[in-house]
């Protein structure tokens, strides 16, 4: 699992419950996990370039999830993104996937769904984001 430890999964969500619970679970899966309360905080950190998978909330105060996705593409940071959202809109997922997201998980989601999505993200060849 040492290789996994080097894989950083970052969580960006304005909801504290998610920021507290999700990194712990990811660590239980053997990933290195970092949590940020906003897109701006994530962009300002040193973690961006080290992140192998980004679990990204959609609706947040300030910069939204899709905004951050766009900004990362502009910066040529090819980080695979898995969106997580509490707004269950069935039309949202295909639109996000079309724009390059690996997956879109509707809260509440199961461990398996989370793990499948993260693994899919990690399998994605660099530059596919």
């Amino acid at each position: 699992m040492t290789d996994k430890r080097s894989l950083v999964v970052s969580v960006v969500d304005d909801d504290e419950s998610v920021r507290e619970s999700l990194p712990d679970l990811l660590r239980q899966f053997g990933f290195a996990a970092e949590a940020f309360s906003s897109a701006e905080a994530f962009l300002a950190s040193e973690i961006v370039s080290e992140t192998s998978c980004l679990l990204l909330d959609i609706a947040m105060p300030g910069m939204s999830g899709p905004d951050l996705q766009e900004e990362l593409q502009r910066r040529r940071e090819r980080i695979p993104i898995v969106f997580i959202t509490g707004h269950g809109d069935s039309t949202l997922r295909p639109r996000l996937l079309a724009r390059g997201a690996v997956e879109c998980l509707l809260k509440p989601f199961s461990e398996d769904a989370l793990l499948d999505a993260v693994r899919a993200a990690l399998r994605r060849p660099a530059g596919a984001a």
């Binding site: 419950s17 998610v18 507290e20 619970s21 679970l25 509490g86 509440p108 199961s110």
Partner: peptide
Amino acid sequence: QPLSGIIT
């Protein structure tokens, strides 16, 4: 949101 937290 809380449900998600609970499950996680």
